[in-house]
Design a protein around this nucleic acid. Structure first.
Lengths: 218, 218
DNA sequence: ATAAAATTTTAGATGAGTCTAAAACAGTTT
DNA sequence: AAACTGTTTTAGACTCATCTAAAATTTTAT
């Protein structure tokens, strides 16, 4: 089994590979992990020895097949626990991350499988992210950022890019909830802010907001 | 907050204090923790600096008020998770310990409180042990060992002393379940084995078994 | 193409938790 | 009260994950 630290690195590399499909750099991972490049190098060496990443000095790294499977299983656990916290324990979607970060490291195949069953085999976590099944398979929803929509286009709010407490609480305050239909009424060229229609109301959101909202076009 | 290791030591000291109310020795704790006396001394020094135990060199140690509160809160979490695993996730009582050992270290007041509510504020874990409430209060059930009962006496099976997988599975195999009424039909003087009546059936159990079964006299 | 800048790795140190081996101490026996 | 026995503590070492500072390498810019 792997240490908490190793698992956290694997998860971080997984997330960074979306942005850097050709390979992740030491500095990028150091920033993500809020640590120093030298610490990253040390850890990557260890992960490389354990066959979890493919690594050549100075050339960046990628998850190996084993590393990918391990990362996906941690993400599966993280997201299942998030569903548990929201659906069963009255947590709101902005409160779950920290606790799920702890729970994702619990080692028990039976626990994960039974939790999945208990929750009704959910396919999305409270932020709209897909939950891998026991085999590690999950469908990446075909989604775009709200900021990429043009005037007149519309879609369903299916996920957030930034899942920080502050952003999620902002969305709650504005009543922007997962599953709502959003239509671009107008787009301001100067600052890229958009006037949207949602649940019969109109509101204007800045580019910083629209750039963190995922939309499924209908 | 405390490390996993510190928390495990506190829990072990808590359990040992029942057997050694006047103070726990280094060797006793080393055996309980399956480690060496020197490691225990190191850790006790640390716990002592953090005001979790009262310690004087060569004189043994006891939990301080803070240490006791901390230990009780870990035990509360352990037992709540055990209930969750058995009641909601189809675990049997012999499968829960290992996973609860991991889950007990999750740090979130809200999680513990909501879990307690979700489970209906249980007062006993699957092995009959009392679950402390949020204030750390719990009632110690007035119970005796089955081996202490005399011929003709009877009571309810309310808990186990040994909660190892093998012992719990043995009880399952013999259909000896928590809550059953047990009566001593006969006691063999030579080996202290007892013939008991339970659920209308009679069976003979050795002293090793009867010495690990807690009975509440009715 | 070479110098400057940025990135990455190495070297050496630290703290947590553990170990073995040796020293210090406590309790008991003679 | 001195010696023996068993317990406890200390000393020094190891691994893990981290750090700072310096060296090595790659990338960028002139």
């Amino acid at each position: 089994m792997y240490t908490f630290s190793e698992e956290n690195y694997l998860k971080a590399i997984f997330h960074l590979e979306r942005s850097y499909p050709s390979g992740v750099s030491t500095n990028a991972l150091a920033e993500e992990m809020v640590t120093k490049a030298s610490s990253v190098t040390d850890m990557i060496k260890k992960l490389s020895e354990k066959k979890l990443v493919n690594y050549k000095k100075y050339q960046g790294f990628k998850l190996s097949k084993l590393g990918m499977e391990t990362a996906v299983s941690i993400i599966r656990k993280h997201r299942l626990w998030e569903v548990f916290l929201v659906d069963k324990l009255n947590f709101s979607w902005d409160e779950v991350h920290e606790v799920a970060e702890q729970l994702e490291h619990i080692k028990s195949e039976k626990l994960t499988g039974e939790l999945d069953r208990f929750l009704g085999f959910p396919t999305r976590d409270p932020h709209g992210d897909p939950i891998p099944d026991a085999q590690g398979n999950f469908k990446v929803l075909n989604k775009v950022l709200l900021s990429d929509l043009k005037k007149g286009e519309s879609g369903i709010f299916v996920g957030v890019k930034d899942s920080s407490t502050t952003f999620l609480q902002f969305l709650d305050k504005r009543n922007i909830t997962l599953g709502s239909e959003i239509k671009i009424i107008d787009k301001e060229l100067f600052d890229q802010s958009v006037l949207i229609q949602m649940n019969g109301e109109e509101l204007r959101v800045s580019n910083l907001i629209s750039g963190n909202i995922y939309i499924k076009i209908i």
